[in-house]
Design a protein around this nucleic acid. Sequence first.
RNA 1: GGUUCGGUAGCUCAGCUGGAUAGAGCAUCAGCCUUCUAAGCUGAGGGUCAUUGGUUCGAAUCCAAUCCGAAUCACCA
Length: 591
Amino acid sequence: MNIVQLIREVVADSIKKLYPESDSSLDFQINETKPEFEGDYTIVLFSLVKALKKSPEMIGQEIGDSLIQKNPELFESFNIIKGFLNLTITDAYWKSLLFKNHNDICFGKQAMNGKKVMVEYSSPNTNKPLHLGHLRNNFLGWSVAEILKASGYEVLKSCIVNDRGIHICKSMIAWQLYADGATPESTHKKGDHFVGDYYVKFNDVYKAQIAELMASGISEADAEKQAPIMQKTQQMLQDWEAGVPEVMQLWQKMNGWVYEGFDVTYKSIGSDFDKTYYESNTYLLGKDIVQEGLDKNVFYKKDDGSVWIDLTADGLDEKLVLRKDGTSVYITQDIGLAKQKYDEYKIDQSIYVIGDEQNYHMKVLKLIAQKLGLPYADDIYHLSYGMVELPTGKMKSREGTVVDADDLVAEMKATAQQHTETLGKVKDFEPNELIELYETIGLGAMKFYLLRVDPKKKMIFNPEESIDFHGFTGPFIQYTFARINSILRKESNFVAAPSNETLLKLEKEVIYNLEQFGAIIMEAAKTLNPSVLANYLFYLSKSFNSFYTEHSIGNAESEDKKNLRIQLSMMTANVLKNGMQLLGINVPNRM
RNA sequence: GGUUCGGUAGCUCAGCUGGAUAGAGCAUCAGCCUUCUAAGCUGAGGGUCAUUGGUUCGAAUCCAAUCCGAAUCACCA
């Protein structure tokens, strides 16, 4: 149990004993005490005033007295200022917390709760390489999965690959027309970039053809349909659906190139999946559910044979669920896949990490599932995140205005190398150790940068300004860890002992922050928000750094102090390491 | 037009389940390396919390309206 829960329990108990006639559901707030006042945690008394019909001062005095009397091991003293009861926790409590947990690598994690969650993330298209937006998605998905694991869930990471459809045919057609048999091998290009180039090529040609047609007096809408390259692409899509062997072969060949490229990128950013779904296998799913919906009168059929659902009563529109030719649409497939996931894994919750541009779609998906009375309907959760934009606006693959994932990773590693070389602290490292270090720091900076912001907010990335390595950043926390490690290396035969000395302000502050780790993980899990954790790790590092510069650890004033400070350093290192791991970031022993 | 989300320091963001004098980082300025890693620490300046009204002991936080920005409202995925 964390300390806030403990205080809440003890205070509620005191209230019940002091004011037996009071309502037992009486609620009160516990805050961290502001630094300008004396104390650790504060009970806000105003909410009790009305219910207990006494002045805040009197309530504070009575509760304070009772707390000290009944829990002398927990509370040292209290003071009341206006309506605030400030409680000071005993040094003994903090020291024993530290002594018990300083070397516990599981500190802050919850026991398994028996619930199973699937987190779907990444979900790339196989017609272009990954970009910065995908990185935000990948880091978010990965981190949320880890945070859920730490708070007791069994987690399955899944990915749906959008490997078919008109957009895939576009790069296929462009390759057929313009590649002249070129391959990633022959051009020494990474497969996903190679294919992406033909997707861009398609759009260039398509645009030119539209312009040409419009110049001859055809309307834009007609020109878009009549452009020869688009007609070829439409034909190819039909051939694909008919399973024409040459098209299937081309499709498999080009997708294969992309997967090779993706593998490299995923490996470099540390993304992985327990289960990968391919849309080419799932796009026919959901049709049986349409029939079920018709039988239940949730759906209705129009004269042309298309099937619809009317969501106007819920403030949405009419939505098509099956085309008149009997083929399924996006939403139908998704309902089918949702069912498959549930049937296959018996999951208790299904989390979709998808950009906020699909808020409407996901709302419809859940609503339809609910109207159909599907058992997993309420367990569908859309973890919606904001787009990453450039100062010039949205990134567009087909116009080539994207920050490429591979390029950015390479750039971050190069910057890490540059900083490291300037500082010159690891000159004795082997070449392979250096490469690993640059990767750790570069990726750490990038992941932290993307995760420290509330997921639901859109972010603007300026490629002109490189991602920082100082201040509220990944490397700052990594550095704090490396520094602690450098001290601990010298204390290899350390044996922890309880301390008898009074805690100094900065010592206590670090322990106070360490104590909150478990509560922070739970908060991050509850809100599916890694930025809560990122902020916490930063403040913990800051408070440790302040302590570090002010007090010596190796040459402490006494053996007792030295022992205490080593415990403090060990526990901070553990929390930083485990916390960063939950963000998907490694910490180096030296940097 | 409907729906949803956002607007806090020059910039990037915390704080939002109402609580004490609104916090970080970057940038600017001033200090700190004969002692454990200066990717660090200490301090200064910088704010009409978009606007207006309401709710109350108390509002950046809740409610309403307005203004600005974004997403979305496809027989595309």
